[in-house]
């Protein structure tokens, strides 16, 4: 019984992983790729780890699989956030059909402040 449930969970996880990788290939710019990849691949790996936990129960392997779920949550979300922020600050353009961009003003303001700090040091 537990083996069947774990196999079903793992196959659902593989399906979500596949969707995330397809999104990684299909979407047009960095931010959209980051969205699909982070969400789908993280949930797919959660499903695989849950499947391992269901298969082994509260033994050593099962508990370790259970512990790595919150670890994966924190690591993947923070990595996605920092990647998106770095890409925007470096100046990679958004897709040309993008609708709104509220972040631009803020970044330009920050750059102006940074330049005003740099000038007296250089002259």
């Amino acid at each position: 019984m537990s083996e069947t449930i774990s196999l079903i969970l793992i196959s659902i996880g593989i399906l979500f992983d596949l969707l995330g990788c397809l999104g990684l290939l299909r979407f047009p710019d960095v931010y959209n790729r980051l969205q699909s990849a982070t969400k789908c691949v993280t949930l797919g790996t959660w499903c695989i780890l849950l499947g391992v936990f269901v298969r082994f129960g509260f033994t050593e392997i099962g508990l370790k699989a259970l512990i790595s779920i919150p670890l994966l949550f924190l690591a993947s979300t923070v990595a996605a956030h920092s990647l998106a922020r770095a890409a925007y600050h470096y100046g990679f353009p958004m897709w040309k059909k993008s609708v709104a961009d509220d972040y631009k003003e803020q970044v330009q303001k920050e750059e102006k402040i940074a330049k005003s700090f740099e000038k007296p040091a250089g002259s």
Binding site: L22, D29, K39, K97, V99
Partner: peptide, 26 residues
């Protein structure tokens, strides 16, 4: 919400017309 998110992304990935309209909001 997380499961809903994944079906949402799955719909957008598998749709041949790529129904996305991205943007940054505050």
């Amino acid at each position: 919400e997380c499961i809903k998110a994944n079906f949402d992304v799955a719909y957008r990935v598998l749709h041949p017309g790529l129904p996305i309209k991205p943007g940054i909001v505050k």
